[in-house]
Design a protein around this nucleic acid. Structure first.
Lengths: 194, 194
DNA sequence: TCGATTGACAGACCGACAGTCGGTCTGAAA
DNA sequence: TTTCAGACCGACTGTCGGTCTGTCAATCGA
């Protein structure tokens, strides 16, 4: 079954590629399964063989994104040791990446509504949020913030940074807004962890 | 046309009442026009006479909520003069109200996805965000924060407070999380505006 | 007073869409 | 060569948002 398996993998990836483009440009609701089939040239049966439904296809696309975003962010903080420095760098890196309209639409706009806030946050939990908590925990150990606030602060920082990213992406002048937002977020984190 | 107009208004309000309950419990996608018709006992023609479409019905429901939320928040800050005090009180009042699951589902989860982030923020712009900016502007005038950061900070605070509200609402122990979140948000705002 | 007009409402109908299902094809293994 | 698992096919179904052609009662103008 070597040849067949390879064919299946290729088809599945093709679905994800095409769906990514369509979801990004037309949104989840604005993208019909029909359109995905037409662009891939595959059949309905093929798609539903690989994915249980439209939502599962979206989830696959989303996870694809998260993998890439996390990899790039890890690159940015490589070699750093100071928790606050790490947090600041990671946040700025994330804002930069969120400038990508595809990330905007899929990760920040559609994902919470399609999956529901809870499941969406559980995905983050395993990745970004967990890291944030670790870094803030380290900051608390250094006496920079109160131990009791670590958990909530992690959420607040995450939400703030996402908001900054949206702000940049939807700005009429993204470049200008980017530096503005980065300045503000840096100041914001400085005050939070002073 | 006095009698007819009154009947129309009553019907319209009935639609909004029923739609509010259904949107809140089953979400936007999970609520069919058919279900709204069945619960109201009205006809499709009637609904589409009063609203151009499902999205417009949702918008009407949303605006209904915003009016109530703003009124309650204004009550909470009545008589206050210190901008920082106002901001803190308003934020805590909002978190309290966002504990309401109806507010959660409609205002925080569905609204951004249904209307799109841009339009959603434009609604806020006229209300909450504008107030935040005013208060932060006052804080800047007092030298508490940099004038340049007022705009971005307003967004970050708004996003943070919304996140705190979600955190409370989705918590397995909302009462405990509420005090925890309020403590953290207060500290958060203190640091931001110190 | 009575036809004209207007706005509220009715419900049959349409097209699009997500998802299902019985069947076919391919290629690896026995 | 036969067998079989898994990839793939496409007609079909149920649901849903939205449209369209009316009907009816309330008001207005002559």
């Amino acid at each position: 079954m070597n040849r067949n398996v390879a064919r299946g993998r290729e088809t599945r990836e093709q679905f994800i590629r095409v769906a990514t483009r369509l979801f990004a440009t037309h949104g989840y609701d604005g993208t019909s399964i029909e359109a995905v089939l037409q662009e891939t040239g595959a059949s309905r049966g093929s798609l539903y063989h690989h994915f249980p439904g439209k939502e599962a296809l979206f989830l696959a696309v989303l996870q694809d994104f998260e993998v890439r975003v996390i990899a790039r962010t890890l690159d940015a903080v490589e070699g750093m040791t100071d928790p606050v420095e790490i947090l600041k760098t990671a946040c700025l890196a994330w804002i930069n990446q969120a400038g990508d309209p595809e990330v905007q639409q899929i990760v920040l706009t559609d994902a919470p509504a399609v999956l529901g806030w809870q499941r969406f946050r559980e995905l983050d939990e395993q990745n970004v949020l967990g890291e944030f908590r670790a870094v803030l925990g380290a900051a608390a150990a250094e006496g920079r913030i109160d131990e009791r606030h670590v958990d909530v602060f992690a959420h607040l920082v995450l939400a703030s940074v996402n908001e900054a990213a949206m702000l940049v992406a939807r700005s009429p002048d993204p470049a200008a807004t980017l530096t503005e937002a980065q300045d503000a977020v840096e100041e914001f984190l400085n005050r939070l962890l002073s």
